[in-house]
Design a protein around this nucleic acid. Structure first.
Lengths: 105, 105
DNA sequence: ACGCTATATGAGCATTCACTCATATAGTCA
DNA sequence: TGACTATATGAGTGAATGCTCATATAGCGT
């Protein structure tokens, strides 16, 4: 079945729309990391991390390649960070507005 | 319970990460729309649409105000479109790369 | 071959999500 | 007031998600 444009956009956003996946992407930033390094750093269970990484790769957020036993990852495109940074700015502004509204009341 | 930074970012992305909600936001773009106009235009059941709109408002993607019987909506911030447009560009590029890879093989 | 390390995946579980139908609420107008 | 319109919400359902434990696979070094 053919995917609609909205479905394509939703897919990449859905891949990013999870706290642990955001932590993974931000931890990797410009460096190259392997699964084995991420698990202890982010305190994620190995199989859980592996599944999150798979989701990110399948959505095109990360690219991965094998290096012996390890699988390395890097962020596929700088624009991923633009999305995250914009989301951060919006979230921050939204929370601040809410606090303002509370203080006025 | 205190929300982590990653959770805040994930929330706004999760609000956007659904095909129907993307369609809603893109239909509204810069215009002001009411629930009653969106339902037939997007072919969404009224209660379903109402719930999607609630999610978008709660995440700060849309702002709403009452006007008589109607509830009107507009997109809260231009940067929402930056996120959507970037996601679109990334999705497009990713699909194209996949097709290339298939043709090489 | 063996053991060891890194990663992937099957199965099961609890939770959340998207949807629909029916009903409730709120505002308008005669 | 009552009829009508617009929106919200309770309840139920099936599907998807995130997690964990256990097991499988794959590549290394001895």
């Amino acid at each position: 079945m053919q995917k609609t444009p909205a479905e394509f956009k939703a897919e990449i956003l859905a891949a990013l729309a999870h706290p642990n996946r955001i932590r993974i992407v931000e931890y990797i930033r410009k460096d190259i990391r392997c699964n084995c390094e991420l698990a202890p750093a982010l305190e994620l269970e190995q199989s859980n991390l592996s599944r999150h990484l798979k989701i990110l790769v399948q959505a095109g957020v990360l690219v991965s390649w094998k290096d012996g036993l390890r699988v390395n990852f890097k962020v596929a495109d700088e624009r991923i960070f633009k999305i995250l940074d914009t989301a951060t700015a919006l979230a921050k502004q939204f929370v601040e507005k809410k606090i303002e509204a509370l203080q006025e009341a």
